[in-house]
């Protein structure tokens, strides 16, 4: 898989306790459905990111299980409420078990 850095955008990195942070993530991936045929008529095997997880200080925040109906270069937007300062860790896992990881820090003032 082409190693490109996932793009992550937080609407704010400094928040008051319990304030909602909006998180947008975008990662490059073909998300091959397994339904498409190549020029020779052979089915192109499925190759998708099947799991996305986001943890904050080791605690699960948000995740999803993807199917082939998720568009190429999966985009997610979600919101969460940090109660303390810490690190958001993002993990994407594809059908071959390749993990793509990223992290962002948030400060609660």
């Amino acid at each position: 898989m082409a190693e490109t850095k996932p793009r992550i955008r937080l609407d704010k990195k400094e928040v008051r306790k319990g304030q909602i942070v909006d998180v947008k993530t975008l990662v490059s991936h073909v998300m091959e459905t397994g339904l498409r045929k190549d020029a020779a008529g052979k089915v192109v095997p499925r190759m998708i990111i099947n799991t996305f997880n986001c943890e904050f200080n080791g605690q699960f925040v948000f995740g999803c299980d993807l199917e082939s109906a998720v568009s190429a270069n999966p985009y997610f937007e979600f919101k969460f409420k940090p109660m303390e300062s810490g690190t958001l860790k993002f993990t994407w896992i594809d059908d071959e078990g390749v993990r793509i990881e990223a992290a962002e820090t948030i400060t609660v003032v």
Binding site: C64, E67, F78
Partner: peptide, 29 residues
């Protein structure tokens, strides 16, 4: 779920008490 797609399941979002029950993505239909 998408009833007229080749596979019904599209995505399953998982939330926690920390997250707000709202999510967006882009899908194939």
């Amino acid at each position: 779920v998408a009833p007229a797609n080749p596979n019904a399941r599209v995505i399953r979002f998982r939330f926690s008490p920390l997250s707000v029950p709202e999510a967006s993505t882009r899908i194939r239909l």
